[in-house]
Each structure stands twice: as C-alpha cells, then as structure tokens.
Simulated assay, not measured.
Amino acid sequence: MQPDLHSLYLPIPVWLSACFTLLVILLVIGMYYILRKNSQKQALLILMGCLLWLSFLYVLAENAFFLNVTVVPPRFLIAILPPLLLIIILFLRLDGRKFIDQLPLRQLTWIHTVRIGVELLLFQLFIVGQIPGVMTFEGRNLDILAGLTAPLVVFMVFSRNKWSSRVLLWWNIIALGLLINIVTTAVLSAPFPFQQLGFEQPNVGVLKPSFIWLPGFVVPVVLFSHLVVIRKLWQG
C-alpha cells in the first residue's frame, strides 16, 4: 500500500509550531537549571550545545531536507543518531558515568511532565492531518500517562516518602516502555520504505519545523532521563 502524501509539503499551522517551540524552550530551561546545580560552567556549555543542535535541525527542516523520504537510508537518521550516540558514549565512558551519577532523581522525574504538552500537541497535529491517529492517545499512544503520573510520583517518593525507590524504578521502566511504544509507532507510521502503519495519514509532521525537535531532542532527553534514573536505582 502506498502512503497518502498529500500533506507532506503542507505547512504546519504557525500557532501549533509556536506552541511546540515554547514547550522545547521550557524543556531546555529546565535542563539548564538541573545541570546548574552541579556546575554552572558545564551547564552553560551543554546549553550552548543544545541550542546549536536545535538550530541545526531547524535549518535542515526549514529547507525541507527531511521531506525527501525516498532516499535510503532515511535522512531522518541525521536527527536521531547523534543524540543517541551521545547517550551511549556518556554511559560507556567513566567521566560520562560520573556526570550521570551527579544528576538529581527528583528533577529528572519532573522532566517527564513535558510529555503532557507533547501529547496534547500531537493530537492537534493529527487534527491538521500531519500524523495518523494511531500516534495519539486516541490510538495506541499512552505516553501521556507518564506525564500525568510524574507529579504524583515526585510527591509520593520525594515529598512524602510514602513510596520507595523501588516504585520509582518500576515507574521509570513502565514509562520507558510507553516511550518505546510511541517511538516504534511513529517510525512505522512515517512514509519510509518500511512503513507499516498510518498509510491514509502518514507521520510527516515530525519531519518539519519545529516538530523535528521531537525525535531529535525531546525524545532523547526523556530517554536519557529514564536511563539515568534506572541505572542509579538499579545499582542500589
């Protein structure tokens, strides 16, 4: 079955892109304040790196670089491989693991509230024909549950000490599963040669500005947060 690509070159409404841009800005600011607790110089360097990466992705997306979906391997890999490789390097290197172990669990849990905004905006992206319904909470995407429960987990684990670190560990494992589920669904819904889902309304929205930041930045940040907490709690 061939995907319906009538919306591939249709722009995303300005208000929708602006809302997602604001969400990403808030996430960057939140990351900066988390990192600043350990080292302000290090936090500034990471902040500059994030801004450069976001600018790079935006320029590529603005010039329709990712909309050429016929090339193999997909150009989309340029958005997702560098942050994934960075995460792998951090976990493999001794100095990377030292950096990871200094990060605060409470703030890393708060980060997941960004998923509420992401899922609400994804639903709007579906309404304007840029992603399939299967990628929303009306489909097979339950990722919003991680965002909705994050404040409760913070309150019960860190503020009231009612729930143990084991609960935090299992919450992160389950929420990571929700993340993997939507990422898999999004990839299989994109108009690439291996597409399996969403042929009537493919996932083209995340190939455009500013939603290219979702796979290229937001998802890696959320993934990194989960992996850091799981590593720290698993080690005891």
Rank of each mutant, 00 (worst) to 15 (best):
S165Q: 15
F126A: 14
L27V: 12
F224K: 01
A79Q: 05
G177I: 09
I80C: 01
P202V: 12
F194T: 12
V14I: 12
P73W: 02
Q195C: 07
Q107L: 15
I131P: 11
Y32I: 00
G216C: 05
A175K: 08
P74Q: 10
A43L: 06
S225D: 10
G177F: 05
L168V: 06
L223K: 00
V219M: 05
L178I: 09
G129Q: 04
E62L: 13
Q124M: 15
L67Y: 06
P215S: 02
L214K: 01
L23A: 14
A186M: 10
I127F: 11
S39Q: 08
N172E: 05
L67G: 07
Q102A: 13
D4I: 04
L10N: 10
G96S: 10
K98Y: 12
V24A: 05
V154W: 04
P13E: 10
R140M: 10
S159K: 12
T184K: 08
V229Q: 13
N203V: 06
I25Y: 05
W171H: 10
W15E: 14
F126M: 15
T109K: 01
L197T: 06
D4F: 01
I180E: 13
S17G: 15
T113A: 12
R160S: 06
G133F: 08
P13S: 09
L148W: 07
R97S: 09
G49T: 01
D95W: 15
A61Y: 07
Q124W: 14
E138M: 14
I34D: 02
Q40L: 13
Q124T: 12
L81G: 00
Q130T: 04
N203Y: 08
L142C: 02
I12E: 05
L178R: 09
S55R: 00
Y32S: 00
D4R: 04
N141G: 09
S17F: 01
L148R: 04
M156Y: 09
R75F: 13
S210C: 03
S189I: 11
T136H: 10
P11W: 03
F224Y: 11
W110E: 15
V157A: 03
S7E: 13
L125V: 09
L47K: 01
T109N: 15
S55G: 14
D4A: 06
L94D: 15
I100T: 03
K232G: 10
I131C: 06
V128Q: 06
L84W: 05
A79P: 07
Y9P: 00
I127W: 14
F224I: 03
D143W: 03
H226I: 06
I78C: 03
Q124N: 12
A64T: 14
F194G: 01
P151I: 06
L148M: 14
N68K: 13
K162A: 11
P11F: 04
Y33K: 08
A18P: 00
N172R: 02
L45V: 15
L26E: 08
I46P: 02
N203R: 06
P215N: 02
L168W: 04
W170N: 09
L26P: 00
I12D: 04
